[in-house]
Design a binder for these strands. Structure first.
Length: 752
RNA sequence: GCCCGGAUGGCGAAACCGGUAGACGCAUGGGACUUAAAAUCCCAGGCCCGCAAGGGCAUGCAGGUUCGAGUCCUGCUCCGGGCACCA
């Protein structure tokens, strides 16, 4: 157990040498023994929840990007601690999901054995890098003690009517053999394996996230609730995709009404035909007998086309006339109703008024099928040929026409969002089973909370198949079950839930990991949430971050938490590239952090990563560069030795004094704004000034050690001890600086 | 097409509110120490012309505002990212 035996201890004689491995092992041991990083979660007076995106425990181990992100977050946490906060910095593993499962399939090992092995390796690396983690609260989403509550969460949504099942055309990845969320389809391909995504119709569970589109959008503007990186806010805004416009009713001859959505009600007088999506339910009702055959053929063809080529494929317009006519409520004229697949059922009302004069797609269609084109806006943006609205500027006409529609009962101003409901069903093995039972008599029955968790059974053969059903259906002893209500014959839902559901609430679990009778303790949650600082990659700008916000809103509504927004502050970190190019296995330029840490020490590695460039922009990892921070730490080490050996207090030379206070201010500023590179540079300048002045005054040197402690924590602890302190450097406060000295003009200093 | 970022030496980058551009670090060149090498220490350096003193040009491009612009304004170019047959 005692790891110190395997480590060579420094002898008295060489204790003046800086040996990172010895120092780092010593302090990691001591932190664990003295519970240095374990705040009192029930009594902390100044709680600061410092969260970083938990990793997916891959077989490769933590890569340098993870190290960069975690170190940057850890630096922030340690800095907050120096400001007197009780910092809670937990870590865990996002270990369910297709990613893990596919890897398990590839290497032919069950994920149940593979994942714990990977986690162990991750834990080792996370400890080695010296993060301020509270290991008492480590969690894994694959732990039944965790996913019990993921299932509980599903039940809360189900009971509140926020979860529903419907047959839907979904994105099906033929390679991974599963449904994908829209968010997981990139340019028509599976984000994971790159296969062309197909369209399939399956019964799926959905969450009503689209009901929250408005709130999800509005809160983005509220800095007091969410102070987030601009890039992330923008990505979410685009994803939510708000469009302001109007819904307008067009009566059809047979007494039916076609409702359309348009962002351009000002062009209403130019609507010369209509187009319905092929799946539109009104199509069969309005199609005239003579057109029936052609329309049916077209609809069938559209249904067989996968979503991909329909959305991003060739844009050549196709369509067919229904034989029906509608009346333009503005002009009173009769216009033909067509069916075409360039109109999508999922957006708006699945029907459009076509204004070929002012919409490129409609014009293409009109030209191809020889339909009428009537311009209603002239070059100067003035409405023409628009009845009583003729002569108005288009922007004004827009409002006036909406008002007129409302008065006439023919339409109203509405807002549309691009966001669709969240499909959480996955026909896979490695995830939390969705806690639903289908009874022959009672129908859909939620698993009673007392029966949670619905444990994921061990399946020797967990391969997905083409049936569209999860492999869980093949385990009959698990699949067939007595109905919890009537005791009759029933079977389980076999889909597991999306990994993003696991990660949508993990921050709530961390402070409460020891409780098995509740997902999160009310008191703990009130004290620690919302999260004070969240740091992570912008690749999750719309997936994880949007789902987490949605889940928090629902939990708030249901009275489980007292906040709407889970992350008070979010900062997206940058990316690390190697020698100017993105790291990839095929390029062979992947940095294995372990090798660098073994050679240079965790503190040097951390300091180098933070010195590369601004944390929020990332930087270029170059092997030669790491020697700079190491040389710097070596020099500070030597300076500490001098300071420790000389206790006589002399006057501090003026240039040193000025630089000292300037550094305290500048390093503080850099840490506050996540511009760590400037903090480190400031400390380097102070070192240079001290050396030039041949000064090793302990007052200055001690402050230097405190300033470096977020970057090089073990190093700083050791230096602090060498300077004669018996307590942790992290019990110190960031030293105050003299404002007058700190803003002193450099020129003046040079003169003196 | 729409919406966000960004562009500064050989390289990574600094520059607070419009006021000495290039701090800090890497790499490089010269020197010291050493039998030698490594390590360490000292010195130099934006680019061009010049032995030098000095001069000219410099923050993606073109203009503008200002006593003064890397920073503000207008119009471009290129790079990165988000959205996209979304009505």
């Amino acid at each position: 157990m005692d790891r110190s035996h395997s480590m060579s201890q420094p002898s008295e004689s060489d204790s003046h040498m800086y040996q990172p491995d010895v120092v780092e092992a010593k302090w990691q041991r001591r932190w664990a023994q003295q519970h240095t990083n374990e705040p009192d979660l029930d009594r902390a007076e100044r709680p600061f929840y410092n969260l970083m995106m938990f990793p997916y425990p891959s077989a490769e181990g933590l890569h340098v990007g993870n190290m960069f992100a975690f170190t940057g977050a850890d630096v922030h946490g340690r800095f907050k601690r120096l400001q007197g906060y009780d910092v809670f910095e937990p870590i865990g593993y996002d270990a369910f999901g297709i990613h893990s499962e596919n890897f398990a399939l590839k290497v032919g090992t069950h994920p149940g054995t593979l994942i714990p092995r990977n986690i162990e390796n991750f834990r080792r690396q996370l400890k080695r890098i010296g993060g301020m983690f509270d290991w008492r609260h480590e969690l894994s989403t694959t732990d039944p003690r965790y996913y019990k509550w993921t299932q509980w969460l599903f039940l809360q949504l189900f009971k509140a009517g926020k979860a529903y099942k419907k047959a839907a055309a979904v994105n099906w990845c033929p390679n991974d053999k599963t449904v994908l969320a829209n968010e997981q389809v990139i340019a028509g391909r599976c984000e994971r394996c790159g296969a062309q995504v197909e369209q399939r119709t399956l019964e799926q569970w959905f969450f009503r996230i689209s009901d929250y589109a408005g709130k999800l959008l509005e809160n983005l503007d509220d800095k007091s609730q969410m102070d987030w990186s601009d890039t992330t806010i923008t990505a979410q805004r685009n994803w939510l995709g708000r469009s302001d416009g109007a819904e307008i009713e067009f009566p059809v001859e047979q007494g039916k009404i076609i409702r359309v959505f348009t962002t351009r009600p000002d062009t209403l007088f130019g609507a010369t035909f209509m187009v319905l999506a092929p799946e539109h339910p009104l199509v069969p009702e309005i199609t005239t007998p003579s057109q029936r055959e052609a329309v049916n053929a077209y609809r069938q063809q559209a249904a067989s086309k996968d979503l991909v080529s329909r959305k991003v494929g060739e844009r050549e317009k196709t369509g067919v006339f229904t034989g029906a006519f509608a009346r333009n409520p503005a002009t009173g004229r009769t216009i033909p109703v067509w069916v075409a697949d360039y109109v999508l059922m999922e957006y708006g009302t699945g029907a459009i008024m076509a204004v070929p004069a002012h919409d490129e797609r409609d014009r293409e269609f009109a030209e191809k099928f020889k339909l009428q084109i009537v311009p209603v806006i002239n070059e100067h943006g003035i409405l023409e040929d628009s009845g009583e609205f003729t002569g108005l500027p288009a922007a004004e006409g827009l409002h006036r026409i909406i008002a007129w529609l409302e008065a006439a009962g023919a339409g109203k101003g509405v807002v549309q969002y691009r966001l669709h409901d969240w499909c959480i069903s996955r026909q896979r093995y490695w995830g939390p089973p969705i806690p639903i039972i289908y009874c022959e008599k009672c129908g859909v029955v939620p698993v009673p909370e007392k029966d949670l968790p619905v444990e994921l059974p061990f399946l020797e053969d967990f391969r997905p198949d083409d049936s569209g059903t999860s492999p869980l259906a093949r385990d009959e002893s698990w699949y067939y079950v007595a109905c919890p209500e009537c005791g009759g014959k029933a079977r389980r839902e076999t889909d597991v839930s999306d990994t993003f559901l696991d990660s949508a609430w993990y921050y709530l679990r961390y402070p409460s990991t020891e409780f098995d009778d509740r997902p999160f303790d009310q008191e703990r949650t009130r004290r620690w949430c919302p999260v004070a600082s969240y740091i992570g990659g912008n690749e999750h700008a719309v997936l994880h971050l949007l789902y987490s916000r949605f889940i928090a809103m629902v939990l708030h509504e249901l009275g489980h938490v007292d906040f709407d927004e889970p992350f008070a502050k979010f900062r997206a970190h940058g990316l690390i590239v190697k020698d100017g190019a993105k790291m990839s296995k095929s390029r062979g330029n992947v940095v294995i952090p372990d090798e660098y840490i073994a050679r240079w020490g965790a503190d040097t590695f951390r300091t180098y990563l933070m010195f590369l460039g601004p944390f929020q922009e990332g930087g270029d990892f170059r092997d030669e560069g790491i020697s700079g921070p190491r040389r710097f730490l070596d020099k500070v080490w030597a300076l500490v030795g001098e300071a420790a050996a000389d206790d006589v207090l002399r006057d501090i030379p003026r240039p040193v004094e000025v630089k000292w206070h300037q550094t305290l201010m500048r390093a503080h500023e850099g840490l506050e704004n996540l511009r760590y590179n400037t903090s480190i540079a400031a400390c380097m300048e102070l070192l240079n000034t001290l050396r030039e002045a041949q000064c090793s005054d302990r007052r200055v040197v001690e402050d230097m050690v405190v300033m470096l402690s977020p970057f090089a924590p073990h190093f700083a602890e050791e230096c602090w001890e060498r300077l004669g302190h018996a307590t942790s450097v992290f019990d110190e406060r960031w030293p105050e600086w003299d404002e007058a000295l700190a803003v002193e003009d450099n020129v003046e200093v040079a003169v003196q």
